[in-house]
Design a protein around this nucleic acid. Structure first.
Length: 911
RNA sequence: GGGCGGUUGGCGCAGUUGGUUAGCGCGUCACGUUGACAUCGUGAAGGUCACAGGUUCGACUCCUGUACCGCCCACCA
């Protein structure tokens, strides 16, 4: 035992214990009807992900909850897994292929998917290995992947069920298109950013029917646009119907410059007369607003771009194949040349960007699949309104409900290959006919497609023939589903839903609904809201009871940590340098509920220092421990605990336990961490261990040292799993692992206010004496005599019986305690209401200086006294304030007076 | 345009239903190595709690407004 190193070395212990836990299956949970279930599903990290501080925070919080509840006797399951991350993974593999000088279409779908699976095989579990370094106690054998066979069936099943209820539909609609990824995106995947651009004022010549009109000088209208290239797809010009300036124009038409087509001038209330010229160009295929106007007016939509945002054959020949930005310059140049560009004004506006590759999103009219969000949203709003699901902090509830109010169709089809292929099949014959008739009928662009009519079949299996025409030329939809279309099933699909064997069903019944979902704010809309929708629709029950939203991890300047900015602090570096427990403790103490965390490397020192402190306190105890003495039941042994210090530390421990338990129950992780820190360091180490050194061999001291340490390690275990295990294993213990031990039971009998007050009085005396020693710079070796003069007998008795504490910790040679002691000459003085402390310091003390010190103290106390007395003179206060408060104030005033009087008396002695 | 969060000693932060002489960590200063720990110990200095009103016997805490910083949402042509 005595060869324990004085420095804690985390690297040697962490991997050892993690392996031990995993090998012994301690993370495993199963149905146990004797226990209550407690389940958290991990927010599945992307397989492309590498560990960052966000994961560290997110995972630490979950692991604390999991270990805490496991120790409390719940059947505790932390369900792990990863997300296939459609676009992100596809991009990574495409890049890899690109380096070989090829593109994905060169490989073809099948080979590309093979490559992606290979990639996943090789790198896809990196993040899992990294989560293990964080100490996460997930039930790893259950690890799910959103593209597992079983899971994929769930995804297809959900698609089919929703399609059958018309909750999924296909439509020609304007969506967010990423020209680089060449796929549709949902609204959430298009991140709005402020962009500096220009507002271009363009003249559109009005068609004049009569010669009279032709004489008019003002034979054009001016539209303002930020995106002049889209004018090639204009199908109307619009003004506000109430705008008197342009009333005459309504019903006329203009000649679209560069295109030379005649298009109408219409009236629509969506036009803001105050913006620009009050006249807008209408480009239904490339602007969401214009698309809606087109719907209202039955306008045609002209798509003028290819999938890569180059101009297509619908644009005039000169512009075809030009990129959209190139086309913008060309259009502007041509307009300028024709005298049609009136002016250019700088203009800042917000533009959508692809959340995966940051390319500017193009609003793009195309045929896509949608989920009817407004319908699914209702029950999902209700359960939050009802309090069946609670957000922590509560303010997110409002954010959530507000978002739910504005739901629109969720575009779920993606034109990529990596993902769940849409379980829809097309009868080529019927679809062709359907499209043709629609074209001829001039069907409005947004109208939903009638699946049966169009020969579109939704099913798990490839249909043999078309039920409508009997045709056998059938092709599956080329697209895959949005990644979030699989993640939203996570809380139940991970259990094997839609259900195979009895075991899976029993597990789902037992663990669903799960307890808490822990995530960051930016995921609320993407994922949390959708999980609630899916849970309510398919399980008829909420997916979780509580949603804990933690802050975002930022660097010390407040910038979000990101790889591209190079401001990342790698959790693995921190673990190597300081240890995992230090990382966990530091990060958890820094995060007040829901507040963002500003990190710098040195902030992890506090965790490391604390770990080292724990290590050394335990080391001291282990060196001195007589194992035979401590194997007792604390409650049975309680009668043998009579000493103040022992009763005091037990009282303090149980208060700490109570507070920590409550904090963890209320998701106040930083409070829990700080409370333990405060207790362990500044009560147990600073006072109890110091006092115990004198009677280290006494049975009571031995028992208390051991019990308090062992129990503190247990309540610390959820936050610092490794060091607590290492030390616990080296102490006498029952059971195989601290993680399987029980959360200490709150023994209220040990909590005693009187004991704490008494100890506090002694601590105050010691602190006052240390203060005097420091002020007068008394050599530590110097032997000091002290007189303590009390006004109360009870206090005198207390100090008398604990003179040893004072002597030891304040380093006092002789101590005289009495009620009416004479003040020595040339002494330093400390005063507390009913206590005077005299330290004779002839030859050391400077009388003037000491007098000055006392005066300052008097001055301070008098200020406080004045405030207190002002209150007590206030009749309103006396009448309205609660009795206890008034009594408290009177007592305070009395004590202050006593102190001041004593100080003044002493001051006289200096004159 | 709407919503939310923040503003507490040099720095980073706590402060849960209004009543504390406003706390903690780092840093600073002074002293200290008698064997748990210098990743340590002891003591000290340092704040009119962003600003202005209001409610109240009493406001860091509740209400209103202002300023600055940050975030989110919105179909800003």
């Amino acid at each position: 035992m005595s060869n324990i190193p004085s420095k804690y070395n985390p690297n040697q212990t962490e991997d050892k214990w993690y392996q031990f836990w995993e090998e012994n299956n301690f993370f495993h949970a199963e149905v146990d009807e004797k226990k209550k279930p407690y389940c958290i599903v991990i927010p599945p990290p992307n397989i492309t992900g590498i560990l960052h501080m966000g994961h560290a925070l997110n995972s630490t919080i979950q692991d604390i909850l999991i270990r805490f509840h496991r120790m409390q006797g719940y059947a505790t399951l932390w369900m792990p897994g990863t997300d296939h991350a459609g676009i992100a993974t596809q991009n990574v593999v495409e890049k890899e292929i690109q380096q070989e000088g090829r593109r994905r279409h060169d490989l073809g779908r099948e080979k590309f998917l093979d490559r992606t699976w290979q990639w996943r095989q090789k790198y896809g579990s990196t993040i899992i290995a990294q989560l293990k370094k964080l100490g996460c106690s997930c039930d790893w054998p259950r690890t799910r992947f959103t593209m597992d066979e079983q899971y994929s069936i769930a995804v297809a099943e959900v698609f089919i069920q929703l399609a059958q209820k018309d909750l999924i539909y296909k439509a020609n609609y304007i969506i967010n298109w990423c020209p680089r990824c060449q796929t549709a995106l949902s609204d959430e995947e298009s991140a709005h950013k402020e962009v500096k651009g220009n507002l271009y004022y363009i003249r559109y010549p009005v068609v004049e029917r009569t010669s009279k009109e032709a004489d008019n000088q003002l034979n054009y209208v001016v539209v303002a646009t930020t995106r002049p290239e889209t004018m090639l797809g204009d199908t109307a010009v619009a003004v506000n119907p109430k705008d008197k300036r342009y009333k005459k124009l309504i019903g006329k038409s203009i000649i679209l410059p560069l295109v030379n087509e005649e298009i109408p001038i219409i009236a629509d209330s969506a036009v803001d007369p105050k913006f620009g010229t009050g006249i807008i160009k209408v480009t239904p295929a490339h602007d969401p607003n214009d698309f809606e106007i087109a719907q209202r007016h039955g306008l045609f939509a002209k798509v003028i771009m290819n999938a890569d945002a180059t101009m297509n054959q619908n644009a005039p020949l000169d512009y075809q194949q030009m990129d959209r930005f190139e086309a913008r310059e060309a259009v502007l140049g041509d307009l300028e040349e024709r005298g049609l560009l009136e002016k250019t004004v700088p203009h800042q506006h917000s533009v959508g960007h692809c959340y995966r590759c940051h390319t500017m999103v193009e609003p793009y009219l195309s045929e896509q699949w949608f989920v009817d969000m407004p319908k699914l949203g209702n029950p999902a709003s209700e359960v939050v309104k009802d309090g069946k699901i609670n957000f922590h902090p509560a303010r997110w509830r409002k954010v959530y409900l507000n978002w739910m109010k504005g739901l629109r169709g969720w575009c779920i089809s993606r034109q990529i290959w990596w993902g769940h292929r849409i379980p829809a099949w097309y009868c080529l014959n019927c679809k062709k006919v359907y499209d043709l008739t629609r074209k001829n009928k001039k069907v409005l662009p947004s109208e939903k497609i009638d699946l049966a009519e169009a020969g579109i079949m939704v099913s798990l299996e490839n249909p043999k023939f078309c039920p409508k025409c009997g045709g056998t030329e059938i092709r599956q939809d080329e697209d895959v589903l949005d990644t979030w279309f699989s993640s939203w099933l996570w809380p139940f699909a991970t259990f094997g839903w839609p259900g195979l064997g009895k075991k899976e069903q029993a597990e789902l019944n037992y663990f669903y609904p799960t307890q808490v979902l822990v995530t960051a704010q930016e995921i609320i809309f993407f994922w949390v809201a959708r999980m609630i929708m899916a849970g309510m629709h398919f399980m008829k029950e909420v997916p979780f009871r509580d949603v804990y939203i933690h802050g975002t991890v930022r660097d010390i300047t407040g910038t979000k940590m990101s790889k591209s900015l190079g401001n990342i602090i790698d959790p693995l570096d921190i673990i190597n340098q300081y240890g995992c427990d230090a990382l966990r403790f530091s990060i958890i103490s820094l995060v007040a509920t829901g507040q963002d965390v500003f990190l710098s490397k040195d902030k992890f020192e506090s965790g490391r220092n604390f770990a080292n402190k724990i290590w050394n306190a335990a080391r001291f105890i282990m060196i001195n421990l007589d194992e035979k003495k401590v194997n007792v039941d604390l409650c049975v042994f309680a009668k043998g605990i009579t000493e103040l210090k022992d009763k005091w530390i037990l009282s303090r421990f149980y208060r700490t336990l109570d507070s920590v338990t409550k904090s963890l129950d209320n998701f106040r992780f930083n409070d829990a961490a700080r409370t333990i820190y405060e207790f362990f360091w500044h009560e147990f180490c600073d006072w109890y261990i110091e006092l115990s050194k004198k009677d280290i061999s006494k049975a009571a001291t031995q028992v208390v040292l051991y019990k308090v340490l062992e129990k503190t390690l247990r309540i610390l275990h959820p936050v610092m799993p490794f060091i607590t295990e290492e030390l616990w294993q080296n102490l006498p213990h029952q059971g195989e692992s601290i993680m399987q031990s029980s959360w200490p039971h709150l023994q209220k009998d040990f909590i005693d206010k009187k004991t704490e007050d008494q100890m506090q009085a002694i601590i105050s005396c010691i602190t006052a004496l240390r203060n005097i020693r420091a002020v007068w710079q008394i050599d530590p070796a110097k032997k000091v005599e002290v007189k303590i003069c009390l006004t109360r007998k009870s206090l005198q008795d207390l100090l008398n019986s604990h003179a040893g504490y004072i002597k030891d910790l304040a380093k006092i040679e002789t101590l005289e305690i009495g009620q009416k002691l004479k003040r020595p000459k040339s002494c330093a003085v400390a005063v507390m209401a009913d206590t005077e402390i005299f330290v004779p310091l002839a030859g050391i003390i400077d009388v003037k200086k000491e007098a000055k010190r006392l005066k300052e103290k008097i001055h301070n106390l008098e200020n406080i006294l004045q405030n207190s007395q002002r209150k007590l003179r206030n009749k309103q206060f006396l009448r309205k304030a609660p009795k206890e408060i008034v009594a408290q104030e009177k007592e305070k005033s009395k004590q202050l007076k006593e102190s001041i009087q004593k100080l003044k008396d002493n001051l006289k002695g200096f004159k």
